[in-house]
Design a protein around this nucleic acid. Sequence first.
DNA 1: GCCCCCTGTGACAGCCCTGTGACAGTCGAC
DNA 2: GTCGACTGTCACAGGGCTGTCACAGGGGGC
Lengths: 228, 228
Amino acid sequence: MTNVPFLLLIEDDDAIRTALELSLTRQGHRVATAASGEDGLQMLREQRPDLIVLDVMLPGIDGFEVCRRIRRTDQLPIILLTARSDDIDVVVGLESGADDYVVKPVQGRVLDARIRAVLRRGEREANDSASFGNLVIDRSAMTVTKNGQDLQLTPTELRLLLELSRRPGQALSRQQLLRLVWEHDYLGDSRLVDACVQRLRAKVEDVPSSPTLIRTVRGVGYRLDAPQ
Amino acid sequence: MTNVPFLLLIEDDDAIRTALELSLTRQGHRVATAASGEDGLQMLREQRPDLIVLDVMLPGIDGFEVCRRIRRTDQLPIILLTARSDDIDVVVGLESGADDYVVKPVQGRVLDARIRAVLRRGEREANDSASFGNLVIDRSAMTVTKNGQDLQLTPTELRLLLELSRRPGQALSRQQLLRLVWEHDYLGDSRLVDACVQRLRAKVEDVPSSPTLIRTVRGVGYRLDAPQ
DNA sequence: GCCCCCTGTGACAGCCCTGTGACAGTCGAC
DNA sequence: GTCGACTGTCACAGGGCTGTCACAGGGGGC
């Protein structure tokens, strides 16, 4: 998914389909539509959307069944859309493999928010990493690579880098870092933070003596910059 | 999480909290509870649940704010729970980083279904086989082969390897492993996880003293790497 | 009921991390 | 330019973390 999510909307009612298509397009999505489950499955194969919005009440094979068939081969997010609001339907819908279940009538903004929430979830899982210059931080593997090569960071160095990378471009005081990384409250007149930053720089920076990633903010603390 | 998801329920109303805790426990979850946002954030740090069910109307910092604070550091799924059903709240809730938004009163089965739908995303399909280097794990046969030869793993070793292999490349803490494999909550100062990893390495690794598959993540736990 | 294998525990060793204090170097204000 | 405050750097000693092992209890198979 680039920036513009590409959705496939499967809905048989012309009026609702047109209205939703318009609304979703306005919210900034690209939308393809299908009027039946069969057409929908066909378009799924041809167009590879990022997400499917699927009406439950369809002529021919119904939404639950479409959902199950998609799940046999595909893991892409599915949002079920329905007029019924029986709780049992919600359960059946979610158990047939849907990621979310929205009851009509639904406001465009709400559907949009749910779409973004589902997509966000996928992105978080796919790619919980951040890059700064030639540095890549993989938060789930807990590894840091520089130019593709693994860096051997110690636990404290790693925690420090993680905390800095969560707030890129933001200056953090020694106090704050002490709390975040060391879970101490009081920093006396200690070179603790500085020493750790130095060790981290030695591994992370190209030229540790003139750092370009972990910058000193005089009188305050440190800041992680992304070049440009 | 194999069988038993571990949830943290944050809800200030005693009656609702107790009812939901009971209902979720009946559905097969393990549940920890907190009565305020502050307590919840504290318990999150201590207990590392798999998912959070979070009431919006809380005394002190409200659910939206709790959600945003969690998202600053954590990626775990969050389901917001609320009595209001205004659409705008749904939008605000989802935009503050929640994965789903459920309106009270909610039936236990529905909440359960939504919890499972949210958790399902993070899981891999359990019924195929996976290979790591010269190791092949057949999940349906529950066998592990190395260079085509069957390995005799004990039940605990097998569970440990299965849990690791469901999240390849992801660092798992001793806490998490303890929950996933042993279904314990508290790891004292025990070498339990390490001892089991050692036994598993002895069977799985070519050179157990310098492992290439089950890597140690210092200060955290372990990670199963696929070479390349 | 017996036996064997699995499993959790505690102890211990070794390595490497880490906090500290001293000193040098640098920056900015005046 | 000078001075003071702030930061970089380093070596070292203590200790935290992990690997390893032996052992005893328990559970399952026969």
